[in-house]
Design a protein around this nucleic acid. Structure first.
Lengths: 248, 248
DNA sequence: CCGGTATAGTGGTATATACAACTATCGAAG
DNA sequence: CTTCGATAGTTGTATATACCACTATACCGG
């Protein structure tokens, strides 16, 4: 099937990346597996070894593979690549993990910001903001509950969007011209409460991961304050930390 | 000085990386500057364009440069980079939070690496590594239990260190010459088990934040694998995320 | 049985080359 | 004046080739 061609608008190494990502998604390649050698992949798909190597290298940088000299290239045990550089919403996050994101909108409305939210968004309390309450699914299973508060001029237009089938972040960036550049996030362990238990279909007192996030657009303008409750036993948060290297 | 030679034990692209880093450090190249083209750098240092390109690519991945097709490669304008991307051990972390760190060593020994640890450290199972089991305190109160596995040549010398009054990370960096440059960390919510409950003096079933971290030194060599259990109601994990953006 | 050693296979580094895609600039044509 | 086009310079993609460094295995000799 998946043949790599020259006429395609997409680069060959990119096509191979997608092919390999798919092999991981559908389970053909499992964590810990040895993947074919660079020479082998090149021959198999009719591309040169260096082109295959480029595809592999990028997936290594994304954390999907790791190499061992003299032995080969392997699929990482940890499935993910939440690069610090990349700021992802739920939809992109799930896709990167190889799971199918899903959403059920529980409510969407304009309402005045309360004290706590207003402080995070750096606006006056009582100002009308868009509030979105969503149940988040992964492969059809409830994974998290998320409440987003969004504040920008014209945010009431969001009421007319189909937010079950569109990524909120994608909409903000493409349709509303609001690039999401940075975010501050807090993570804390807790327990599932009675209300969340119903939505998430887990017992009260199950482990829960609480996250609170403020997302910023240009000029460090806060756009969104989101607080989420993740099922503790279904979600792992990955982060990559780097020490400033120039000062060694 | 900066000539790139073949006989050097270090690869040419790596030498060029160091040269370019130095140019940034000493201010010869400032944020926003256009650096010489790939061909130019290759000619200048007597290496091929692709080799120069490899050096640049890695620094782009590290965030020092960004490229614009048709225009050239530029030094990044990085606003923050200082405190949020830094990599801290428990001691530094607590001081930054304004709390007094404390440590009780529960055990310190050399023991063979089991399968799971060996994979994270990319060594052979059964190899002798240093294992450190510590109870971590904040302002005198138990906060977390941490198990560190450390693997480098000569790591058995750590047995003689006073690890109740010295930061492990600080020792590794200063005394053993092992700069800790990057880390991959996983966070997951869970519940306190019976063994941890005793040490942490909280009820079984309390919320817990589990973290697993692999710390890397130069050349992406894994040095430490640490897994910790934090009291969920006493600890919040902060992270800052940034999307790559070209501001010209 | 143990320990070299030869070998084949892997990723790592490096070069030379070619063309595509994109950007800026300059000059000619309208 | 504006617009189009040529052009030169940049990064992006792709190939072919070569050798190095490292690993595992099999085989041979002690």
């Amino acid at each position: 099937m998946s043949t790599i061609v020259r006429k395609s608008p997409l680069p060959r190494y990119y096509q191979l990346k997608e092919i390999m990502r798919e092999k991981i998604r559908n389970g053909e390649w499992k964590p810990g597996d040895l993947i074919p050698s660079e020479r082998e992949l090149g021959e198999q798909y009719g591309i040169s070894r260096m082109t295959a190597r480029q595809a592999i290298t990028e997936l290594v940088n994304e954390g999907l593979f790791y190499r061992e000299q003299g032995k080969g290239t392997f699929v990482s045990r940890r499935k993910i690549t939440q690069q610090l550089i990349h700021l992802t919403g739920f939809t992109e996050d799930m896709k990167a993990r190889g799971q199918q994101p899903g959403t059920r909108v529980l409510s969407a409305e304009m309402r005045p910001a309360d004290e706590a939210v207003a402080e995070r968004l750096r606006i006056k309390p009582g100002l009308q903001i868009f509030r979105l309450h969503r149940l988040r699914l992964a492969d059809g299973e409830p994974l998290a509950i998320e409440v987003s508060h969004i504040s920008f001029i014209g945010c009431e237009k969001l009421l007319e969007e189909d937010l079950e089938h569109n990524s909120l972040y994608r909409l903000l960036e493409t349709k509303y011209g609001l690039p999401l550049l940075e975010a501050d996030q807090e993570l804390e362990a807790g327990l599932i409460g009675s209300e969340e238990a119903q939505y998430l279909k887990v017992p009260v007192g199950s482990p829960a991961l609480f996250t609170r996030r403020v997302t910023y657009t240009e000029r460090n303008q806060p756009i969104e304050y989101a607080s989420s409750v993740y099922c503790g036993n279904k979600y792992v948060f990955y982060t990559h930390m780097k020490r400033e290297q120039l000062l060694s």
